[in-house]
C-alpha cells in the first residue's frame, strides 16, 4: 500500500478527520470492520495524548499522521514537535486496582496497548516525536 499522510492542527475537533482517514486506509489494506474500529480508536488516543500533553491544548501546532502497509503489517506513525511526553514511562495499570480508585487519565495508553499489536516510541526532544502503532492482518 502506498504511504498516505494527513496533517492536522492540534485541535480535538480534528479527531474525527483522523479517524476517517485511518479507517479508510485500514479498510483498503484489508481489515474487517471490527479491526478497523480498533485501529481508529488507538490512533484517536495517540492524537488526544499529543493535543493534551505534548501541546497542552495549544490549537496552532501540528500533528502528522502517516499510514503505510507492507507484508500484512499496517503501521500508523503519529508525529508531533511538542514537549517531551514519554508514555513509555506510564506503567500498564492494573485495571481492577485502577478502577477501584476511580482514576482518570492513562486510560488512553492502556487502550492503545490493548488494541494494537505493537506500540513503539521514538522521542527526539526538540525535533520530532513519533509513536508508531502496528497491527497485523489476521492470517
Amino acid at each position: 500500500m502506498k504511504e498516505q499522510r494527513l496533517h492536522i492542527e492540534s485541535r480535538t475537533e480534528r479527531l474525527i478527520a483522523v479517524r476517517e482517514f485511518v479507517s479508510t486506509a485500514a479498510r483498503e489494506f484489508g481489515f474487517a470492520d471490527e479491526e478497523v474500529s480498533k485501529i481508529a480508536l488507538a490512533v484517536d488516543e495517540a492524537c488526544t495524548n499529543i493535543i493534551k500533553h505534548a501541546y497542552k491544548f495549544d490549537p496552532n501546532r501540528s500533528i502528522t499522521v502517516l499510514v503505510r502497509g507492507r507484508n500484512g503489517a499496517f503501521e500508523v506513525a503519529i508525529q508531533d514537535k511538542g514537549n517531551v511526553f514519554n508514555p513509555q514511562q506510564i506503567p500498564t495499570p492494573d485495571m481492577k486496582e485502577y478502577l477501584a480508585h476511580f482514576r482518570r487519565g492513562g486510560l488512553g495508553v492502556f487502550l492503545m496497548r490493548s488494541l494494537m499489536d505493537k506500540v513503539e516510541y521514538d522521542i527526539k526532544p526538540g525535533k520530532t516525536n513519533e509513536v508508531r502503532l502496528t497491527k497485523y492482518l489476521p492470517r
Partner: peptide, 12 residues
C-alpha cells in the same frame, strides 16, 4: 463511538 476521554467522564 467512545474513546477514553468519554470513559473518563463516567469515572469522574
Amino acid at each position: 463511538y467512545i474513546s477514553s476521554a468519554g470513559l473518563g467522564v463516567f469515572m469522574a
